[in-house]
Amino acid sequence: MVFTIDTLLFQVLPYVPVALFIIEAIRRYRQRPFSYSSLSSQFLEGDRLFIGSVPWHYGILFVLGGHLFAFLFPRELIAFGSVPWRLLILEVTALIGGLVSLIGLVELTIRRLTRDRIRAVTNVMDLVVLGVLLTQVGLGVYIALTMRWGSMWFATIMAPYLKSVVLLQPNVDLVSVLPWVIKLHIVGAYVFLAILPYSRLVHMLVWPVHYLFRRPQVVIWNAEPGSLRSTGEPERGG
């Protein structure tokens, strides 16, 4: 086997961020639970946040969901896209998702860099996160526009590659022939995964879906109710 830059990037590299992500996210959750927060800045500035945050989050959730779906169900996706008008709907909605998230992200970046109050709560890692995300989403939209149809070739090329990575038998051949823009997008995804546990991005791991299933009130006893204060004698006087 010839060892090339592709081997490094797509065969060895994937396992570093995955390992980092799993180990560090758990370690941070257990050892530094206080540091898990959305770190929302809405309290300092709300109007511009709405314009940025809502499109960004909904757009990126939709797009990431699309990637995940294409990875898990490539056959079904190809079957769905086999009729031209359905393929167009698929691609146009994906593009809209990408554009919506890109607009939101650009707005969030401008807001973070120009508002004094927001700059007061910005650290270096926040800027790294913004840089990686801007690169990723920008590349993604560029790819969606110029290398069509992403949904189809993702299902035929990327899905088997990712599957091979998951099955610990990475098949570099599949991705090594792709244009460098797409390769950069893949590498960007690994970088994203690697910085996730070290950044504010951890908030996505604690998205409170359990809220839907809990009772409205929470009462916590320091000890079993009924087992306490059974011995105290009445205080007299006072």
């Binding site: 604690v206 809220y211 809990r214 009130q217 009462v219 916590i220 006893w221 320091n222 109710p225 306490l228």
Partner: peptide, 9 residues
Amino acid sequence: SGAIYKRGE
């Protein structure tokens, strides 16, 4: 998050 609670005692 279920972070707020009422102390039983």
